[in-house]
């Protein structure tokens, strides 16, 4: 199980080595696509993936992470998720799904959310075109292998980057914490502002300053990072 991949991983010293190793995983795991995406506690992101450049560009341009059910589930969960189990309803999500399938992502996917040290998180995905029963057999038989591969990749990525990933303890002000907590709980900006008895403009300022402190590239990331660092009052 994964022996040749682990051997290869041992020799990996740079991110470009790691890139190549991750891309080689698709044949080892007998799957069309492999995606690894990490967001460090400093907010830096790293991704290695077999999707077409056109799809990646399109995804970034449209900021699809906002609505992508896989991303939205994985940043808040830690159990492995078969894409079939996600909620793909809603007009925007449906059209995103069709576009993804048309771009060769496949109709099946399995994603492993990874919680690393001090708020680091990553997402590892395999996807492809397959019939339901064959995909179910594949994920059942290879699940542990997929989970282990995802964590080996993550460990290596952290190891390569450890020099630049000094653990900074972020502290948020009570108002910033309140603002992100409301968003984490699913309130929209207007509802959050109303509950906190502040204007939407003020709320935006709190969110932006929290986002900056957390070095998050967008609000979704800020919420996820704050949550993974235990900074929010979600229960």
């Amino acid at each position: 199980m994964l022996e040749s991949f682990l051997e290869r991983l041992e020799g990996v010293e740079t991110l470009s080595d790691l890139d190549a190793a991750i891309l080689s995983l698709s044949s080892e795991l007998d799957v069309e696509h492999v995606v690894y995406h990490s967001v460090k506690s400093t907010g830096e992101q790293y991704a290695a993936l077999t999707y077409s450049d056109e799809w990646v560009a399109r995804y970034l341009e449209k900021d699809y992470a906002r609505i992508d059910p896989v991303v939205q589930a994985c940043i808040r969960r830690f159990h492995p998720i078969d894409w079939k189990r996600l909620n793909w309803s809603g007009k925007a999500v449906k059209s995103f799904l069709h576009e993804a399938i048309d771009s060769g992502i496949g109709n099946q996917g399995f994603s492993v959310p990874i919680r690393g040290p001090s708020g680091q998180f990553a997402l590892f995905t395999v996807s492809g075109s397959e019939k339901d029963d064959r995909w179910a057999t594949y994920t059942q038989e290879r699940s542990r292998e997929l989970i282990l591969a995802s964590h080996y990749v993550n460990q290596k990525a952290l190891e390569i980057e450890c020099g630049s990933d000094q653990l900074e303890i972020v502290s948020l002000s009570p108002r910033e914490t309140d603002a992100l907590t409301m968003l984490a709980l699913g309130f929209n900006r207007a509802q959050a502002a109303e509950s906190l008895s502040i204007s939407e403009h003020t709320l935006r300022v709190y969110i932006e300053s929290a986002r900056f402190k957390l070095a998050a590239s967008n609000t979704t990331h800020a919420v996820a990072r704050a949550m993974n660092q235990g900074l929010l009052n979600i229960c």
Binding site: R66, I67, R85, N188
Partner: peptide, 16 residues
């Protein structure tokens, strides 16, 4: 189990 864990909705897109 599946009733509990399936179908996690996306965050309200308006906030992202």
């Amino acid at each position: 189990l599946t009733q509990s864990l399936d179908g996690i909705a996306a965050l309200d897109p308006a906030i992202a």
